[in-house]
Design a protein around this nucleic acid. Structure first.
Lengths: 337, 337
DNA sequence: AAAAAAATTTCAAGTACTTGAATTGCCCGG
DNA sequence: CCGGGCAATTCAAGTACTTGAAATTTTTTT
């Protein structure tokens, strides 16, 4: 950076060596008071800021966490991010964010970018496509702590923080059933592990209550072009339509509400709706949305803290993965009969 | 970072000096083919990734842009971010994001953080409070290009990219007036420059059409605790209420719609609503929201491109600021009578 | 005034890498 | 058998900074 002053330049201006400057700025007792004052004055005048790269090279610590993110216009992930940044900022860490959906190559390219910047740890948001074998291999050989946010799978050997998706969807579905509803559809999302878990929760609740899941009342957002609106509209237009929908998230539920409005189907009288997430929109929409409350900021804070703990303990991944499941809670509002 | 291999280590493994390794990895013709193969094989085996910090120290370029952001759960800013990252990613740049609302100290601390990381340029989102004189002074003496996003002011000497806020609010207000509405209120936001501009646009349209602005029909979000819902509710509950509201953004309009619903006021029959932004929510809510369309991704891309141009031209800020005003467009939907 | 002691400053090496210059090793001709 | 010419390799300095050791300057003591 041009114009940023270095110890060498301060030394030249003060007529001393750069090591004297270094010591003077650290209030080292070896430096004469008069010299120290002179040096500190010049440093203040030119607003000296030490080069963070150098510290990284010397300590081997970049004080930077790599975050693989999906896109910035996702409210849930945004709130998780807010929690992450809160904790990292307070611990003097900075972040390097790379968007999954911008990269042209393999996920492995992202890992290499993180390596080149020498990040001290990795927070991985779910990528919305299948990981390549090469990516998984690279992930294995990554030398620093890795933590998965909101995604896990059977035998996952990485640290993980996320919501109890299965329990949430289970509770939501049971809530509908206890209210006497049985014709229940599901808007799910098969491209991410949290979506798969929520679908499992839905199916478990149905079968445990002796209800069969109708395949034609199942919509997977993955199959939708832009938004699930069209598919939901078609589902609700049919004579033989569900009387309740368990939705993958609040945004889906909002789309469903729009489709119902367009078909003149009243909520909750003719259609009950349950969302997932409890984003702002859930309590702001009318009728207010019954939904499963998640704690995205808490997830972010916990994820960051867990990663920082691992980094400071330097234990690598030998100790076995830590899985932190944040509980969810059903919030009853007005969208269920 | 532990386990990340250096040129020195590869050199030791291959029995050559680190400069030979450096040249071999660059396919330098001075290196014997057999040696080159041997070195490249070891480098691949250990997945050698050059240390980005070193390149920064040598070239004086960090290939990093500092971004001062507000919070991650803001849809509009999120889409601008997406545009920024698209352009920066394609040009091989990375970002260092710091949140205004997390910092404990002065805005100047943020600038110093950016300086320490030696960012090549700065993209500044609006901070939602008054900048301190010290911050403005530090900004002046910042040695690299600075670009303001979505905020400008009279005599602004920095580059700027943002929407034509005044024109947008003017159009929105005139649209209401042309539809025969005259009892018009305004939900504004005085803490950011775009809010001030939109309010100006509203007032200009009112006065140019011979209408007086009623101060008791003006709500400033800055004065609201959490959301403007409560204030809007009280405004609409009054006997003598406006028949139309020009809202600072779509989120406000959505809140207004909720308040109207709760008071059994029909939109658009009894209350016309205009938003600003044309976020997803505008076209998804029912009735669909008439709003002023902005192009956040375009703003982001333009901002990043303009900044990169300045960086590569190395011209500093002598040439005078470039102000790029992105046009807006009124989208007529169903929330206006 | 010279030596000893104390105070202050500079040196040097290390972090990772680049690159032109210097050096080494090797084959061949005289 | 030794120097020219060439290929292949290493050296050295520079980027910014830290830190213990060494060197220098200043002060004190005899």
């Amino acid at each position: 950076m041009y114009g940023v002053i270095s110890l060498k330049k301060i030394g030249r201006l003060c007529g001393v060596s750069e090591s004297t400057v270094s010591k003077a700025l650290k209030d080292h007792p070896q430096v004469k008071a008069a010299t120290r004052e002179r040096i500190q004055m010049v440093a203040r005048k030119y607003n000296y800021q030490p080069n963070a790269m150098v510290e990284c090279m010397q300590t081997g610590r970049s004080k930077t966490i790599g975050i693989a993110y999906n896109k910035f216009n996702d409210m849930f992930a945004g709130q998780v991010m807010q929690g992450i940044h809160q904790t990292l900022y307070r611990n003097g860490y900075e972040t390097l964010i790379i968007c999954w959906d911008l990269i042209v190559g393999d996920g492995a390219d992202v890992l290499n970018k993180f390596s080149r910047r020498r990040v001290d740890g990795l927070l991985l948001f779910p990528m919305e496509k299948l990981p390549s074998p090469y990516y998984l291999e690279q992930l294995q050989s990554f030398h620093n702590p890795i933590l998965m946010i909101d995604q896990t799978w059977a035998g996952n050997e990485y640290d993980f923080v996320g919501s109890d998706d299965q329990a949430g969807a289970f509770q939501a579905t049971e809530h509908l059933i206890r209210r006497g509803l049985s014709k229940i559809g599901n808007v799910c999302y098969g491209a991410v592990s949290s979506g798969i878990e929520r679908r499992k929760g839905f199916e478990t609740a149905m079968s445990e209550n002796g209800l069969t899941v109708r395949q034609d009342w199942l919509i997977d957002i993955t199959d939708c072009l832009e938004t699930p609106y069209q598919k939901i509209y078609e589902l609700l237009r049919a004579e033989d339509r569900p009387e309740a929908l368990v939705c993958f998230n609040d945004t889906c539920a909002f789309e469903a509400a729009a489709a119902a409005y367009d078909l003149d189907i009243k909520i909750p009288q003719q259609l009950s709706l349950i969302g997932f997430g409890d984003l702002d929109i859930a309590s702001k929409m009318r009728p207010r949305l019954t939904t499963v409350h998640q704690s995205p900021e808490l997830i972010g804070r916990k994820a960051a803290q867990l990663l920082l703990d691992k980094i400071s303990r330097k234990e690598g991944r030998k100790a076995g993965p830590e899985h932190c499941v944040v509980p969810v809670e059903l919030i009853e509002r007005e969208s269920v009969r």
